[in-house]
Structure formats: structure tokens, C-alpha cells
């Protein structure tokens, strides 16, 4: 092991434990204005030396939360970098913590126990009463329609469907298996900056669970650039209300499925 890691981490810890660090922490989290933090640090003191004032000014500049534009740009750069790094380091994803090894046996025992409970539950549970919604199949595919045909000659069709900013978008959600029950859809648009926006859409739900949405680029609030449409489709009572709920519950939910499609909005046709 590199011999300086303990001391360097300890150095970081000591800096963070200093009394002034907490005030700047509140500024970084957006809970406190930088000027307010500076005023609290000054306390009853009327004057500061030139050096002290300069340190204070620099702290105010550093800890104030960045603009939304900067955060978006930095996230976009990180996402592209990660995409470029891609599968080169897929093997690194399975890091085994040396400290975890003694617990494997406990986990195995726990998992076997859980498996036995599930088996017993399935065996002992009574049949579902009539009228109860069917189990959500949980597998939808998304089809986009009405994309602009910009392919000329031998040019390959673009990977991301393009829509003019004044155009229409047709979205069709098709279940892998027939779905019958109180279905609903919520939609979000996301521009890779991390901040997603919920959009209200009118969806037509057909028999067997097929969902069709006929809308326009403007109704979705999309501007020129690349966007991701993220739709949650499933039982109405279980649909996520917010983006955070969607991202948090997506992996575990058995009541709705999430489908995504990228679109590129181009200037007027």
C-alpha cells in the first residue's frame, strides 16, 4: 500500500473538523449565504487585516454554489468521459472489498433463508380473488413516430431520431405481454444535466395495455439539442410523482416499468 494514504486522509479529516469548515459547508450546500457566513466568522470584530480579508473573500468565491450552467456543463463532460471510458474497464466494476469476505457465509445463510420463505409464501398464499389487477408484466418497449426523415442518398439513418422544433412526436408504448388493469403513464424530459422535468401528457390507453401519446415538441417544452424522454408506465396508484421517486424506485418496482428514448430536436424544418 502507498504509505501516505492514511496521513493524507487524516489531513482531509482535520481540515473538515475545523470550526470554520461547518459554516462553509452550509454555504456549499446552499443553506447559508456566503456573506452571512463571513459575517458570522467575523463576529464582534470590526476590522480584519488585509490577509484575513483576502482569505475571507477567496472562501466566499470558492464555497458559493456554482451556477446551474456550470453544473450542467461539468456533468455533461463527466458523462461523455464515462461513456468514452465505457466497457474498457468493465472488470473494475466488481471490486471485492477485502473486509467483506467473512460475511459471505452469513449472507449465504440469509439468502437461503429468504429463498425458503419465498417458496413457503408462494405455496401457502391463497389464490388472488377475482377482480384484482393482474400482475404487471413489467416489460414495455417504446416506439417513436413522426421523426423527421433527414436521410439523403447513402447516408446512414441517424441513431437518434430527429424532430423539428415545431414538429409533432408520436410515442407508442407496447407491452411484451397483454396488460389489463388501471394503467397510467407519467413522463419526464431530461437533458443529461441531471435536472429532469415532469411533463403532462394526454395518453390514450388501448386494450391489452398499448399506450399511445400524440404530442408536439413544443408541448414537451423541448428546445434544440438532445433530450431523453423517460416514461413510467404501470398501475396508476404506484406511479412515481417526482423524478427522484422514479430514479429511486425504478429498480425495485414491480408495479411500473420505465422506458427511455433519446431524441434530437433540430431547428425548424
Amino acid at each position: 500500500m502507498s504509505k501516505d494514504q492514511v496521513i493524507q486522509v487524516l489531513g482531509a479529516h482535520v481540515v473538515m473538523a475545523e470550526p470554520t469548515a461547518e459554516l462553509w459547508h452550509r454555504v456549499a450546500l446552499g443553506e447559508l449565504q456566503a456573506n452571512e457566513a463571513a459575517a458570522r466568522l467575523l463576529g464582534a470584530r470590526q476590522e480584519l487585516s488585509e490577509d484575513e480579508q483576502s482569505v475571507l473573500d477567496r472562501a466566499k468565491m470558492v464555497f458559493v454554489p456554482p451556477s446551474e450552467e456550470l453544473r450542467r456543463a461539468q456533468l455533461a463532460a463527466l458523462l461523455s468521459r464515462r461513456a468514452a471510458e465505457g466497457e474498457d474497464h468493465a472488470e473494475d466494476r466488481a471490486v471485492v472489498l477485502p473486509m467483506r469476505s467473512p460475511r459471505i457465509r452469513r449472507w449465504m445463510v440469509g439468502l437461503l433463508g429468504a429463498a425458503a420463505s419465498v417458496a413457503l409464501t408462494v405455496w401457502l398464499l391463497p389464490a388472488r380473488p377475482e377482480g384484482h389487477p393482474r400482475v404487471f408484466s413489467g416489460a414495455y418497449t417504446i416506439e417513436l413516430e413522426k421523426a423527421a426523415d433527414t436521410v439523403r442518398g447513402a447516408e446512414p439513418r441517424p441513431e437518434v431520431p430527429m424532430y423539428p422544433v415545431d414538429g409533432k412526436i408520436g410515442i407508442r408504448l407496447v407491452p411484451e405481454e397483454e396488460v389489463d388493469g388501471p394503467l397510467g403513464v407519467v413522463a419526464f424530459v431530461w437533458d443529461q444535466s441531471g435536472s429532469a422535468r415532469r411533463v403532462e401528457l394526454e395518453a390514450t390507453i388501448h386494450e391489452h395495455g398499448v399506450v399511445e401519446i400524440d404530442t408536439t415538441v413544443q408541448a414537451l417544452g423541448l428546445t434544440v439539442g438532445e433530450w431523453e424522454l423517460v416514461l413510467a408506465v404501470g398501475w396508476v396508484r404506484a406511479l412515481p410523482d417526482t423524478w427522484e421517486e422514479l430514479v429511486t424506485e425504478e429498480a425495485d418496482s414491480t408495479d411500473f416499468d420505465v422506458v427511455r428514448a433519446r431524441v434530437r430536436v433540430v431547428s425548424r424544418s
Binding site: 473538515m16 456549499a28 464555497f63 456533468l75 427522484e244
Partner: peptide
């Protein structure tokens, strides 16, 4: 990507604070 964007938004203030110090 969507989960990473959420991760970034949650922990960027933490990173900025720690580095800023």
C-alpha cells in the same frame, strides 16, 4: 446515466466543499 446524474447532483456540493477547504 439518470442515476449518475442524480448521484452527481447529490454529492457535488460535498465534493466542492471538501476540495474548497
Amino acid at each position: 446515466e439518470t442515476a449518475f446524474a442524480l448521484f452527481y447532483r447529490r454529492y457535488d456540493p460535498t465534493v466542492r466543499w471538501a476540495v474548497g477547504l
